[in-house]
């Protein structure tokens, strides 16, 4: 049901500003990308989407983003648990440090990884390469998307009453069974939301991945690095097509997130 009321000039002005802001920052670039992708017809699009380098870049982007999600799901849950349930010296500092990937320039993070894991670095791996190889990209994606799951789960876990957990213990459930059957279902929505954000961030990362991966085509090149490279190669259609697909993935994620948010509001209601 839509309610129609006369609006004040101020309200109209504010609506105008909000809409303009959204159009300039979001809709206009999207339209430009769509136009760029389709302006030379369908052939260059097919050519781009059948280019093994592009397909491989998507595989690396999506596959390793899923890897980052897996790692951050496990460690994010553990971290949230530790921050909420454990008291230890330096917990406040630890809590603050979790946000470092949000404030740290990804490019600098990438260089730091090269210093650490690269040739002659303190943690230079003896068996297989980390930087300028897929493990480095996984590491970079994991790093930049690290805080999301912790930050989504932490408040929900913190607000959770201990009593259902205690009830489960007295009913004979082990710690693990209690976590799986009693606590996890409560965290599920927040966790999914965190996973979606983690995935989105990990797929979209460019700076750290470009630095750590070295952009080796068909190996460490990701979809975002491909876009950058394609622009430099004057292959603007390729850049636009891949950008458009990344946009569509983002939009999909956005809708998924809204759906989850609604579920979260309902269940928390």
């Amino acid at each position: 049901m839509r309610e129609i009321k006369p609006r004040s000039p101020l309200a109209l002005l504010l609506i105008g500003i909000a809409v303009l802001y959204a159009v300039v920052l979001f809709a206009a670039p999207l339209v430009a990308i769509i136009y760029g992708a389709f302006k030379d017809g369908i052939d260059p699009i097919i050519e781009t989407l059948t280019d093994p380098a592009v397909l491989h870049a998507f595989e690396v982007s999506i596959g390793l983003a899923l890897g980052a999600v897996l790692i951050n799901t496990i460690f994010g849950l553990v971290t949230a648990w530790v921050l909420v349930r454990q008291k230890f010296r330096g917990r406040g500092l630890f809590d603050t440090l979790i946000d470092i990937p949000f404030v740290f320039s990804p490019v600098i993070a990438g260089y730091a990884m090269i210093v650490l894991f690269g040739r002659g670095g303190w943690l230079a791996p003896p068996l297989f390469p980390i930087v300028f190889a897929l493990p480095g990209i996984l590491l970079a994606k994991t790093f930049v998307s690290l805080p999301f799951i912790t930050r989504e789960v932490q408040p929900v876990l913190g607000a959770l009453s201990l009593e259902p957990e205690y009830a489960a213990y007295t009913l004979g459930a082990s710690r693990w069974a209690t976590f799986r059957r009693v606590i996890l279902p409560e965290l599920w929505t927040a966790l999914l939301y965190g996973i979606v954000l983690t995935f989105a961030r990990a797929v979209g990362e460019f700076g750290a991945v470009a630095v750590v991966g070295g952009n080796i085509e068909g190996y460490t090149e990701t979809a975002t690095s491909f876009v950058f490279r394609a622009m430099n190669d004057r292959n603007s259609t390729g850049a636009y097509v891949v950008s458009l697909i990344l946009c569509l993935v983002s939009l999909l994620i956005l809708f998924l997130m809204n759906l989850l948010r609604r579920r979260m509001v309902v269940s928390r209601g």
Binding site: S161, E163, P164, Y166, A167, Y169, T170, G172, R181, V182
Partner: peptide, 16 residues
């Protein structure tokens, strides 16, 4: 607590 076999009822119901 798992081994003691007590039934516990909390003030705030604490249902799952």
């Amino acid at each position: 607590p798992q081994q003691r076999g007590t039934g516990f009822v909390f003030q705030n119901y604490s249902l799952f």
